[in-house]
Each structure stands twice: as C-alpha cells, then as structure tokens.
Design a protein around this nucleic acid. Structure first.
Lengths: 140, 140
DNA sequence: CTAATCTCTCTAGCAGCTATAGGTTCAAGA
DNA sequence: TCTTGAACCTATAGCTGCTAGAGAGATTAG
C-alpha cells in the first residue's frame, strides 16, 4: 500500500497532479483509510508510470484516457493505439516544421540587425513591416 | 477611423483578442464614440500588425509588451530588442530539439508495432515499460 | 502524548485566448 | 424619419494541464 506521497516519489508525478488525474478519470479513485487518505496498490503505480510516460511523449490527457482504456482490454485489436500514436507523431512533425520556419525567420531577423538604436533596429523593423519577411508565414 | 471589426479584418486578429490585448496593455485604450464603441486610428492598426507578427513568431505577451515599449523610443539603443529576439530564438531551438527526441521515440514505437491485439501491441508495451525506451528521456 | 509531517478539500491562478449571454449602438435602406 | 439587422458593448466562464495556497484533519516516530 502506497500513500499518495509514496506514489509521487516513485513516479515523479506531483501530488496535486495525481489528484488531478484522478479527477480527470485517468486513474480510478483508490481505496481510502479510515481517515480518508488515499492508499494505492502496485497496479496504480504502474498505471501512473504509463501515464507519466505518455505525457512525457506529449500525448494529451484525452489521448491517454483512450490508451489507458485500451490497455485494459488486451484481447482487442490494437489499431486504436496505433492510430493515436501515429496521429500524435504527425502532429509532432507538424510542430517541428512550424518551429523550424520560426527558427529561420528569427535567425534572419537577429543576424540582420546591425543597427545601434531602436530606430534602425532590424528586429523592430521586421516586426513592424511584414514586407520584410521572406515568403510570409501566413496569408494575412 | 476604424471600428474594432475593421481592425480585426485588416489584421486577422479576432475581436475578443483585440480587447484582450487592450486589457493586457499591449495596445492603448482607444477613443470611443458617444455610444461607447471603440474607434481606432492607423497608428493602432500598425501596432496591432506588429503584435500579430510577433505572436506569429511565438513571442510571449510579456516579451511583446517590452518590444512595443522599445519601439516607442527610436533613439534608445536596440540591445534590448536584440536580446529578446535572441533569447526567443534559443528557446525555439530548445523546443525543436525536444520535439525531435519525441519524434524519434514515437517513430520507434509506431514502427515496431507488429502486434494485432492490445496484448502484444508495442505502443502499449512501450508506454507501460519504460525499459523499452532507448536512453530514457528523463531521469525517472 | 506530542510534535512533525502528511494528507484532505476547496478555491484560485497561470497563458492566451475563445465563447456565450444579455444588452446597446450604428448605419443603411424605405 | 424610422426601422431593422448587423455590429458592438461588458462581464463571466471555459479551454489545457497543471500548480499553489488556505485551513483543517490524519498519521507516525519518538
């Protein structure tokens, strides 16, 4: 039997976060002591590690809820789990692509700034004048 | 004179967002009509475009507040603006590096999954068992 | 038994908006 | 001039994924 603090130390998930996950339905409400404190079993330790790991990979609470649900049914086909991971991979890649665009834009802005006052600072001018962008980032 | 709707159309910033920026002190409270509706000048249109552009680059409201402040003082040295952009560039790069790690991990997980049921699904197993990770992402 | 440390619930806060409700004002056409 | 419909107003609540604090009660080591 683990207290919530034990669970927290073992998984690296903070105590309020554990309670939050319970509220969000990622972990079941555990048994309580007579004094109303949560007491966990090994099972819940494992599930929380699962959740932690999935969060580290950037999966949403929503996606994790689905994965947890799936993991409770080992006999079902795993296409659902695969789809969740694949979809997430795609969104991670999209995010990377977007951030690389930002990186290039920022590099360009920063490197071009040879001015010494705000009046001729390329950083400020680039932000003021969208025309200074290479191929605008958005359609506006 | 532009109404808030005009401003919104011209800059692509949604109306509630414009009001939010006013509240946050990014743009000054404009004059009002007798009937209490906001009326903007060209000056504010330009500033909002500036803000939009900076947001597109991922700068925080806080950072933008500083940049806007700086841009009002063309005679000052631009080291502050440069520092904001440089710092942001560093954080974008850090984010990219982190997402690439996630990308690799997810690729590995997805590509290894040859199972057909949840019971032998690599996605689920990889999440359940941290030991399946290549060089763990975190120290837990 | 006591003191120190957990733990409990509830509430509010973070960023950066977005949405809704319920009311007022504006502008264009008849 | 009047009417109607679109646009606007404020205020409040909600979104994600936590985190922090208050104030009270529970547990445990000595």
């Amino acid at each position: 039997m683990y207290s919530i603090g034990d669970l927290s130390k073992k998984t690296g998930v903070k105590i309020p976060t554990i309670r939050y996950y319970e509220q969000m339905g990622l972990i079941a409400a555990p048994d309580r002591t007579e004094g109303n404190q949560r007491r966990y079993e090994r099972r819940e330790l494992e599930r929380l590690s699962f959740i932690r790991h999935a969060r580290d990979l950037g999966l949403s609470i929503e996606a994790i809820r689905d994965l947890v649900e799936l993991s409770q049914h080992p006999e079902k086909p795993c296409t659902g789990a695969d789809a969740i991971a694949t979809t997430h991979l795609a969104s991670v890649r999209a995010k990377i692509a977007q951030l690389k665009k930002l990186e290039h834009e920022l590099e360009r802005i920063v490197s071009h700034c040879a001015g010494h006052t705000v009046g001729d600072c390329y950083v400020i001018r680039a932000l003021s004048d969208h025309g200074l962008c290479e191929g605008s980032m958005d359609e506006v």
